[in-house]
């Protein structure tokens, strides 16, 4: 075989043994960063919370920090409010983002473009500015109060510093990512599939329930997994908008470390948060695996 012929039959994706090290090198950098910045700190934190010195100064297996967390009502309240906030945010995100995504998928024209721009807009607003805007609008003596006062209406019961404060902020913050993932999922539902369903007699609700929803269930799981992971471990918005007690795990960890100066307690909280996130993450991995199988 001549040199020219050899080049001509070279496949598009070269799997030759000699080229494998280059591919592995590309993969190695992110893998190394994940190991260094995520896996190692996680293993380190877990080991430091379960393998530590006792009162006599001897190293040993010790689950007392976990026992304390799960027996301390304040810690459990904080875990409960974190789970509650995550759950409520997930439900609200689905209720808000699914209609927006459906509208954007099946609408054409200028209005749909404006709606899409508005839905994506929060992605470009930093959380701290969002929190400030929230306080100025919905906080005590905020814009809504001023407007109500101008028309002789009573003051609103502000959600600021209540569990609903972080919920509103986090939902707003997570709308763009959720809409984009759902929109990508809806993109795989062909117009003719929907028309075929209408042709056999399905109305709009039946088309949604029997045709669209089964086709985007993986996208919904992926969107919710991403949102839930972000919300569960969020810090800025719960810290700025949420109540002081009970508080979400993010601010709780920070306060335990800085103010209470209990690094083992903070690490225990982090490990517990990490455990919950792994469960949510498994949903995401399962969804991706299922969609690959299809």
């Amino acid at each position: 075989m001549s040199e020219a012929t050899k080049q001509a039959v070279r496949p598009l994706v070269d799997t030759a043994e000699s080229r494998r090290p280059i591919g592995l090198l590309f993969v190695a950098i992110p893998v190394f960063l994940v190991i260094w910045l995520v896996i190692w700190p996680a293993i380190n934190a877990i080991s430091r919370t379960v393998w530590r010195k006792d009162k006599s100064g001897e190293m040993g297996f010790d689950l007392s920090s976990y026992a304390f967390f799960f027996s301390d009502s304040y810690s459990l309240d904080n875990l409960s409010i974190t789970l509650w906030t995550t759950l409520v945010c997930a439900i609200l995100l689905l209720m808000i983002c699914l209609p927006i995504a459906l509208y954007l998928r099946f609408s054409r024209g200028r209005l749909a473009a404006y709606v899409q721009a508005l839905a994506i807009f929060p992605m470009f607003v930093p959380s701290i500015i969002l929190a400030f805007a929230f306080i100025r609008v919905l906080g005590p003596n905020g814009m809504v109060d001023i407007l109500f006062n101008a028309v002789d209406l009573p003051k609103i019961r502000t959600p600021y510093l209540t569990p609903w404060g972080p919920v509103i902020g986090l939902v707003w913050d997570n709308i763009p990512l959720t809409v984009l993932i759902l929109l990508a999922g809806l993109g795989s539902v062909a117009n003719q599939s929907i028309e075929a369903a209408r042709d056999v007699g399905a109305n709009a609700v039946q088309v949604f329930w029997h045709i669209i929803l089964p086709r985007i269930s993986n996208s919904i799981l992926v969107a919710l997994s991403f949102s839930v992971l972000g919300i569960f471990s969020s810090f800025t918005l719960p810290y700025l908008l949420g109540p002081a007690s009970p508080e979400m795990l993010g601010p709780f960890m920070q306060r335990t470390l800085r103010e209470v100066q209990d690094p083992v307690g903070a690490m225990t909280q982090a490990v517990i948060a990490f455990g919950f996130c792994i469960v949510f993450g498994l949903f995401y991995v399962r969804s991706v695996a299922r969609s690959r199988e299809k």
Partner: peptide, 10 residues
């Protein structure tokens, strides 16, 4: 009853 070009099966 319509038969579509792309089959449009679910």
């Amino acid at each position: 009853g319509m038969v579509f070009q792309s089959h449009a099966l679910w």
